[in-house]
Design a protein around this nucleic acid. Structure first.
Length: 597
RNA sequence: GGCUCCUUAGCUCAACUGAAUAGAGCAUCUGACUACGGAUCAGAAGGUUGCAGGUUUGAAUCCUGCAGGAGUCACCA
């Protein structure tokens, strides 16, 4: 690769000229900004002190040395202040484009499936309500990061820990028994998760009424909230669940199965999936053994009331509860247990948790406790902490009804896609099924790109009043570019009878072609960087830039009317490479690309 | 109150480990269609990177202080 050759030549020059010993890898090359001529830029300021010369002189000397060392790759250099810009020969770019023209794996590395896996947990839904926009961000991030690591050659295992037990489900169950009239997904035609979610809301409504009544009759608010009959009954139900009461368990299984059917549908629509699904009902007791171990080791301590704690004040944190006084486990206890289980199940090289940044503290504590329990692999735990999706008036809150439902949103996007396609009227020859699939692909392309193009660590804003765009920096723009390129390649093959498999000799290229080729050249390093940062956003923004560069080049290059048949073939092959690249980058994002749209 | 994170164009977002004149899209304005795909392209306008200091040849980026916002500090999950 040209960049590594350059690094080596520069390191050599630094050593020969000034006796500066440096690793070739440590030489930082940046891409030359568009307003200057050149491809790669070396900033020489860091070396002027040791060289004891003016920046311009240093730059010129290094430039001469590199030019002499790489006469076949570097055609010229120029110096502006302390910036040394190298121009790479056209023939290098032209040959590179030729070499990758039909590489369908462009940008993707091969996975060693025998390597210790990266286990990535994401989604992890509660089973008492349907998924909303926040969950969509989680799911898409989890999926996309999995793809990204796979693209970078890691052996990835995706897991989901379903939070299927607890007081929240009992609330839905109780409300369904009390107010449900035996409603089922079949009898109502509702999606299972929505039906169960409806009763969760129903519970809250009646519960609030009860609290109000109690307060009207003179009970203090705090007491009323604890004593409301519905809540007490829900707590009793949870106890019965834990005791294995048949009736409660049967209802629990029935309602959970409705929810799973609903979730599966939504997962399928989103195009995400898992290698293994854990259920909290099976694993929630696991942490207790660890707590005993921690007590034996003296890492944890028991208070007088019987509750068990970990003192983290020496780590500048608080004391953390691990077992309630009644001996039942809490959230973090379960997470300790499931972490160990997962480590045993997979022998993981890394454990990634895709969880919102509201749980930063939780994971900080989790890692410290694991470490204190003597598990060295605690260092392998990585909390992929993502920011909240906010609405114009603040955070989404289920209880206040300010949520954007996942299914509704997807459906709305599909309608928008349909309208847009209708307006263009380019797809008259497609069957209704094909059209339906197309609308779905475009709707999800828009939604996924919208959520993934933002740095995962940052919170982002979604305004329901302004529907997600299909023009500009969007998924459909990239999908459009892809479809457009495929159309050109098809025509070249069908009408011009070009064989895109046959290589061409290096040809002269212009600036716009050079820009596109350079972007393709960067692709592997972009993937590596994005993987290191767990950031699909870097892939998204790169892919947009690639599509944009292509469109700009394409606008004034009549490819299939080229007089020079060598060049025509070269350009079509370049198109093919770009489409392969786009397709693979979109694969990382979990976005399908249509051959036509 | 303690701790953590955030603040970049009217709006939504970029800017890899500090580097040249801080970039895109939307919205606004001006141009370009005999479609090898106009869901496009070319251009204009829009900025004291929250404020004040500091380090550096060089700061949106690192350090300190301040202001504003978010999260968290539960015998909830």
């Amino acid at each position: 690769m040209i960049d590594t050759n350059l690094q080596q030549a520069i390191a050599q020059a630094l050593n020969n000229l000034y006796g500066i010993a440096s690793d070739a890898d440590s030489i930082v090359l940046q891409k030359t900004k568009k307003e200057f001529s050149g491809d790669y830029t070396l900033v020489v300021f860091p070396y002027v002190k040791q060289a004891r010369k003016a920046p311009e002189a240093v730059a010129n000397e290094i430039g001469e040395a590199v030019l002499a060392a790489l006469p076949n790759d570097i055609s010229s250099f120029n110096v502006i202040k302390g910036f040394l810009n190298f121009t790479v020969c056209d023939s290098y770019w032209s040959s590179f484009a030729n070499a990758i023209a039909t590489d369908t794996r462009l940008g993707l590395q091969t996975v060693d499936s025998t390597a210790a896996p990266v286990v990535i947990e994401y989604s992890s839904p509660n089973t008492n309500k349907p998924l909303h926009l926040g969950h969509i961000r989680n799911n898409l991030l989890g999926w996309s990061v999995s793809q990204l690591l796979t693209a970078n050659g890691r052996n990835v295992k995706k897991v989901n820990l379903v939070n299927d037990r607890g007081i929240h489900i009992c609330k839905s169950m109780l409300a369904w028994l009390r107010f449900g009239n035996g409603e089922t997904p079949e009898s109502t035609g509702m999606k299972g998760d929505h039906l169960v979610g409806k009763y969760y809301v129903e519970f809250d409504k009646h519960y609030k009424e009860e609290v109000k009544q109690l307060m009207d009759s003179g009970v203090e608010e705090e007491q009323a909230k604890k004593e409301a009959p519905l809540l007490v009954e829900a707590q009793q139900m949870l106890k019965r669940w834990e005791d294995g009461d048949k009736e409660v368990r049967a209802l629990w299984e029935k309602m959970n199965s409705w929810v799973y059917a609903g979730f599966d549908e939504t997962y399928k629509k989103m195009g995400v999936g898992f290698d293994k699904i854990y259920y909290e009902s099976n694993t929630y007791l696991l942490g207790k053994e660890l707590v005993q171990r921690g007590l034996d080791m003296g890492v944890l301590f028991r208070k007088d009331d019987g509750s068990v704690w970990c003192d983290l004040t020496d780590a500048n944190l608080d004391q953390k509860l691990l077992l309630r006084k009644d001996g039942t486990s809490v959230y973090i206890t379960q997470d300790l247990g499931t972490a160990l289980l997962r480590q045993k199940d997979f022998g993981a090289d890394q454990l990634i948790y895709v969880v919102g940044n509201e749980q930063d503290y939780h994971f900080q504590v989790l890692k410290i406790i694991l470490k204190r329990l003597g598990f060295d692999w605690a260092d392998k735990v990585y909390h992929l902490s993502y920011g909240m999706v906010e609405l114009p008036n603040g955070k989404m809150k289920s209880r206040e009804g300010t949520v954007v439902d996942a299914d509704d949103l997807i459906e709305e996007m599909e309608k928008t896609a349909e309208e847009m396609c209708r307006d263009r009227g380019k797809n008259d020859d497609m069957t209704p099924d094909q059209l339906k699939e197309l609308y779905h692909i475009l709707a999800l392309g828009a939604l996924k790109y919208f959520l993934l193009k933002v740095d995962p660590t940052k919170s982002m804003l979604f305004n329901p009043a302004e529907s997600i765009d299909f023009n500009g920096n969007t998924g459909p723009f990239i999908q459009y570019t892809y479809a457009r390129i495929r159309s050109i390649v098809r025509k070249a093959v069908n009408e011009k009878s070009l064989d895109i498999q046959s290589a061409t000799a290096p040809v002269a290229i212009n600036d716009k072609e050079r820009e596109v080729i350079k972007m393709l050249h960067d692709m592997p390093s972009v993937v590596a960087q994005a993987a290191a940062a767990y950031s699909p956003a870097m892939i998204a923004n790169y892919t947009y830039d690639l599509a944009k560069s292509f469109n700009s080049f394409y606008q004034d290059t009549p490819i299939l009317r080229e007089a020079d048949s060598q060049r025509m073939l070269f350009l079509v092959r370049l198109c093919n490479a770009v489409s392969n690249g786009i397709k693979n980058m979109m694969w990382i994002l979990g976005i399908d690309v249509p051959e036509r749209m």
